[in-house]
Design a protein around this nucleic acid. Structure first.
Lengths: 184, 184
DNA sequence: CTTAATTTTCAGAAATTTCTGAAAATTGTA
DNA sequence: TACAATTTTCAGAAATTTCTGAAAATTAAG
């Protein structure tokens, strides 16, 4: 497994960014490598290419499988497990996106919902509740938004991309549609 | 600074989630506390309420100021610095969102742009370039999307929220508009 | 069943991040 | 200016996360 300097840069970068995206450096590197490399790769090759221990590769593959980001293949006459990134780039992004939504938004929404159920006992708590309600509304909207986004098919995505700055124009459109209606 | 059990739960939770949202536990707690508490709070009060060292509070406040999430106030006849969360909940969310976009997307876009400039030297590299291009297109779209979102005013947000599952309906609307005229 | 190839596990090592607290620096007041 | 209140800094301690590598477990072939 010789990596071109391009691939090398790509892999190292996704290692560094990995932590921001929800996995650690080596998992990020493994994922990046499987993504740019179009041939299936086995664990020993990963360990060698990334200069990390075999055990670490095993753990990383397990994690990537839990995220459903990679899939297992076999080469005829070879007992080793081979892996590739699963699905299109958009599929992968969507999976990561969805997973992050689950981890970053859902637990908070659950807690805030609980907090909103209890009656405020004094002025101070009433004020706090108001804030909690605001945070809740906002996060719920983000959650629905993310949820919808992650359900989009590839063709819907293409639609969005064609619109250029997307949301901007969509909002304009909405404003236009609203303006046509009488009243208010 | 006595925290109600509600406030307590809120603060502790945002501490735990903090790392997922880009800051560490104590910074998350400090931010949460300043967010639910409507009176200005000073550093000693934070240290006491969160049971952390005065030095840690100082560092955390510095970080929150760098993010522009809090602002400084003064009480007449008191030399201490007092802090509040700055702006509305939506302002805060937008700031966090924007900051994360900068940290998570921009550096990657910059690298990928560079990688796309160099000519592929063989079949292998040509394939890699294709993948890089795909990743680039996707992330660029996400970036524009996030950028637009973070520029939305509060009233635009309200507009979006009224639409319920937002994007879903917007996309329907768009499809309708393209086909002919919206009937809804 | 036995054996060899392969993968997984996990205790402890290494690396990284966060936190403390005392000392240094800064600030406001007299 | 001198001084006390307050904030900041930062070296090292503590906590947490990641990684290694050898041993255990699993798997497939003969």
């Amino acid at each position: 497994m010789k990596l071109s300097s391009q691939a090398q840069a790509f892999v190292l970068h996704f290692g560094e960014m990995g932590s921001r995206w929800g996995f650690n450096r080596t998992v990020g590197q493994m994922f990046a490598l499987l993504t740019i490399h179009n041939k299936p790769v086995n664990a020993d090759q990963l360990a060698e290419a990334l200069k990390i221990s075999r055990g670490n590769v095993s753990m990383g593959l397990k994690e990537l499988q839990a995220w459903r980001l990679i899939e297992l293949h076999h080469q005829p006459g070879d007992r080793k497990d081979y892996f590739t990134a699963s699905g299109s780039i958009w599929d992968l992004a969507r999976t990561v996106f969805e997973e992050r939504r689950k981890r970053e938004l859902d637990p908070t929404l659950t807690l805030l919902r609980q907090l909103l159920l209890t009656e405020p006992r004094d002025e101070q708590e009433t004020e706090a509740q108001k804030k909690i309600q605001e945070v809740y509304s906002l996060l719920e909207m983000l959650d629905q938004f993310a949820n919808t986004l992650s359900k989009l098919e590839h063709k819907d995505l293409a639609k969005l991309m064609k619109l250029g700055s997307g949301l901007n124009k969509l909002l304009d459109l909405k404003a236009g549609a609203k303006a046509k209606k009488p009243g208010k």
